[in-house]
Design a protein around this nucleic acid. Sequence first.
DNA 1: TGGAACTTTCAAAAGTTATTGAAAGTTTAA
DNA 2: TTAAACTTTCAATAACTTTTGAAAGTTCCA
Lengths: 168, 168
Amino acid sequence: MKLAEAKNQFVQAWGTLGSKWGINRTMAQLHALLMISPDPMSAEELMEELNISRGNVNMNIRELIDWGLVEKVHKPRDRKEYFWAEKDIWKITKQVARERKKRELEPVLRVLDQVSKVEGDKKDKNVKAFTDAVSGIKRIAGNADKAIETMFKAEENWFFGGLLKLFK
Amino acid sequence: MKLAEAKNQFVQAWGTLGSKWGINRTMAQLHALLMISPDPMSAEELMEELNISRGNVNMNIRELIDWGLVEKVHKPRDRKEYFWAEKDIWKITKQVARERKKRELEPVLRVLDQVSKVEGDKKDKNVKAFTDAVSGIKRIAGNADKAIETMFKAEENWFFGGLLKLFK
DNA sequence: TGGAACTTTCAAAAGTTATTGAAAGTTTAA
DNA sequence: TTAAACTTTCAATAACTTTTGAAAGTTCCA
């Protein structure tokens, strides 16, 4: 397989994966493209490679910057902005986990705390089913939370070594 | 907080969470409703609680059944179908992980295997950046895959006990 | 200061996904 | 076999999300 073809397939696959996990397809494709680019890329190059408008590149790159996955870089003697993506997959994984935890897990945990204050007869099977379900979810979500926190502090080695040793 | 209000907030929160993770909001809401219901519910009850059409209930319940999270149940002397959801959060977690792995992780791993056969000069920095990125992703994805496989075999206790002990 | 080179914004258009509801299909029991 | 009670399907449409592109904004430097 030629590099151009391989790149293309990779960018498509990353876009599809992203969209199945609630990430804008274009944002994921931009990220894919930057991840496999040894050099920072300009808006023009990104527009060109993905056949999308300047506005679209701008918005999605901004979002990637907001997620902490991409940075602007400036080349000396060049007014254009270039974009560079973190390439260490372990750092990317941690960063995505950190953001999703903050944006999605934490708000739900707050609601769970609220609703677990439900008042009512503990003998009522409806109340019991509700509180049982909520406390179960809180328990697992709280543990997922701790797991992510630990991951932030951990070395890549912990994941590729320690965790897997535990598994076998 | 009254049960009715708490239920409502929970259903909304679960729906929002689902939609941010690529799961149809209605499907997630139906799941939430069934998780906190001590008894199986009929299509009518679900339509009523969520203010949605019969067709919509039917499609999304079918999807939940397909994900292995909900079952049809029949009551004696009643032609109606009722729906019941698994309530053990550990089983739900494992089931969701299993399905997403099959539907989303595995297809990507197949593409990664394909594209890592890229031909070309290993000295070319573009080829190098590409193969480095792809092999990094394969490595982490393969490990996530193993982690999920292990989770399938594991007891809930492994997660709530062993894993967390390792963490501290 | 003016204007070229660039980036950002945002309202409208296109594209995608979810929902409805009516019609078709199925099952049950008399 | 019939018809009532229920479920399923699917084309139309509504709702939502993404993308465009032209206009506005910014920055740089002659």
